[in-house]
Nucleic acid binder design. Structure first.
Lengths: 230, 230
DNA sequence: ATTTCCTTTATGTCTGGACATAATAATTAT
DNA sequence: ATAATTATTATGTCCAGACATAAAGGAAAT
């Protein structure tokens, strides 16, 4: 007879939820009772339940107990890779090109988005990432010079700003958002699309303890899909 | 003097990584050493390190040790809510309408996607979800009758199939993918767009232990954004 | 009836110890 | 030199027991 692991407990609990032994919105036995039933320690049950709660299956509250979540608002985990890795993972050759680089006062829309003062200076970069020489992603990147002073000396002709930032500048918070948009003339040009074609847009803003670090708008052309399994 | 919690340990480790005390791609001290340094038990250090590894910050291997991940492939967590909750969270009134319902043999593209046999029957539904009476999401839903026989008797005139499925049918695996597309004539009509306007598309396929349950294509009109912070 | 205080209870976390396991490093046999 | 075997080591997991803490429920005071 093998020992009951926290994985076994998770599995058993999941099965009971699926076969409606434990119905949605009802409380399940407490940890001590389950530990006794499964023949393991409370710590083991606790870990199993904690992870299931993390996954959105269960809802736990002190004293109240553990309830089966009626609407399992399951959270999908998206792995956000580097462009280089994303391209190379498909077997395609990755190439990077810097389109433009300039230092300028932060435009109003960016000041609003990052809550910057009105005399903030930013580095603005436009970059293109290719997969097998076909444009794959257009990167519109803004970096807050006040938070990252050394960015003015950095060389972005061979390596993209994202890779540089990841290796040089830590961050504590990220906001990420996805949307569908149409390509304007400039974007269509860069991504080899016709104006008006749909583009998949990912916008990422990062902070280092309340100090805005960077804002990036990443545009992907035809056929791009962001996929996850869980 | 307070006790050192696993949260304290996580915080300290993160700080040391950020200030480059522990550089990327280098090994950090083992759990016993850290427990001694922090004045806590190894279990506490273990939990902190395990969670940081889960978050993609660290890379752990038995015997080898714990290494600082050079390219923190941080994974974003997306909470996928019910349409109803998503709409009501903005303060808008939610309304649902069933557009069409028919039982038919699975079309070839669906058979391929769900690996269905060639005489599979499916229930096909078209639904509209409104926010304050403005179309918010168009749902193109296909349900595998073989896996969910009782779906033929279900009434979808008042409640959307997603809510019904969530409460009635368990699932074990989900594939989710996002993309940008253009509205065709039918979709433009339903979402009150002009044909050719961009739509944000989410496609979700779910299985119950290798048995395909359902495939849904959810289309969102103008201005829809899917956002997460971490 | 409403507020305030106290008790109870289930989860949250820590400890210190133990054994399991994977992977590396060292050793021995071919 | 190369392959097979054996130690070593850091992480992975488990346990039993302890105390902390949030929150529900009831009791007492207003």
């Amino acid at each position: 007879m093998e020992k009951t692991t926290f994985r076994d407990v998770k599995q058993t609990v999941l099965t009971r939820i699926r076969d409606k032994t434990w119905a949605p919105d009802t409380f399940i036995p407490n940890e001590v009772a389950l530990a006794a039933e499964f023949g393991c320690s409370r710590s083991t049950v606790n870990r199993a339940m904690r992870e299931l709660a993390e996954e959105g299956i269960l809802d736990r509250k002190r004293k109240a107990g553990t309830r089966v979540n009626a609407t399992p608002v399951r959270n999908a985990k998206f792995v956000i890779p580097l462009v280089r890795d994303e391209v190379e993972a498909t077997g395609a050759a990755y190439r990077y090109a810097l389109v433009s680089r300039e230092v300028l006062p932060a435009p109003p829309w960016l000041r609003a988005r990052l809550s910057l003062g009105d005399k903030s200076r930013v580095l603005h970069l436009n970059c293109l990432h290719f997969a097998n020489n076909a444009p794959f992603q257009f990167e519109d990147r803004w970096i807050n010079i006040a938070t990252v002073p050394m960015v003015e000396q950095a060389d972005f002709s061979a390596r993209g700003p994202n890779e540089w930032l990841l290796s040089q500048v830590p961050f504590t918070d990220v906001e990420l958002s996805f949307s569908a948009n149409t390509a304007d003339a400039q974007l269509a040009d860069f991504l080899a699309l016709s104006p008006g074609e749909p583009v998949f847009t990912a916008e990422r803003t990062t902070w280092l303890n309340d100090n805005p670090v960077t804002f990036a708008r990443l545009s992907f052309g035809r056929g791009y899909r962001m996929t996850t399994r869980y």
